[in-house]
């Protein structure tokens, strides 16, 4: 029996830089996780669809465009509508402290700012997945 952490990494919105998110993807993979990378310009619906289909433990979002105060809430809203709030949503990007606080209040599990070492994100993810509880009965 194997239990692997599965994480979806995606970039919503219009900015076309994917170097940062690819570095994170490689770091997560090297930490033994299965990383699903779904690419640029993902709509909240595409992101949540992918997360459900891939049965990920967490969704990681990178936003550099400044649109974080609209995109994160839109993803949270979509997650609520599809009843998948138990999936951990985290993110990174150029995000001011006060916005970070507000987003974390709304339900984003964690926001990483650009200087944060990838080890920090890996450790966060491991602990957050560990803490998840489920009373699921398969059959």
């Amino acid at each position: 029996m194997t239990r692997k952490i599965r994480v979806l990494l995606a970039k919503p919105g219009l900015d076309g830089h994917d170097r940062g998110i690819k570095v994170i993807a490689a770091a997560f993979r090297d930490a033994g996780m299965e990383v699903i990378y779904s690419g640029l310009r993902q709509t909240p619906q595409m992101i949540v669809d992918a997360a459900i289909q891939e049965d990920v433990d967490a969704i990681g979002i990178s936003i550099l465009s400044g649109a974080h105060m609209t995109l994160f809430p839109a993803i949270l809203e979509e997650m609520k509508n599809r009843k998948v709030n138990d999936i951990i949503l985290f993110g990174g990007g150029i995000i001011p402290d006060e916005d970070k606080e507000e987003l974390e209040k709304m339900g984003v599990a964690k926001i990483f700012t650009p200087g944060a070492p990838t080890e920090e994100a890996i450790e966060f993810l491991r602990q957050a997945v560990e803490k998840k509880k489920s009373d699921e009965k398969i059959m």
């Binding site: 993807a25 993979r29 930490a31 033994g32 299965e34 990383v35 699903i36 990378y37 779904s38 690419g39």
Partner: peptide, 25 residues
Amino acid sequence: TGGALLGDRVRMNEFPAGGEVYFRS
């Protein structure tokens, strides 16, 4: 490392939301 980078989804366009398409890496 036992890890994997699953990138085939990148090539997919947006599909209708009705569950006609299901993609699993």
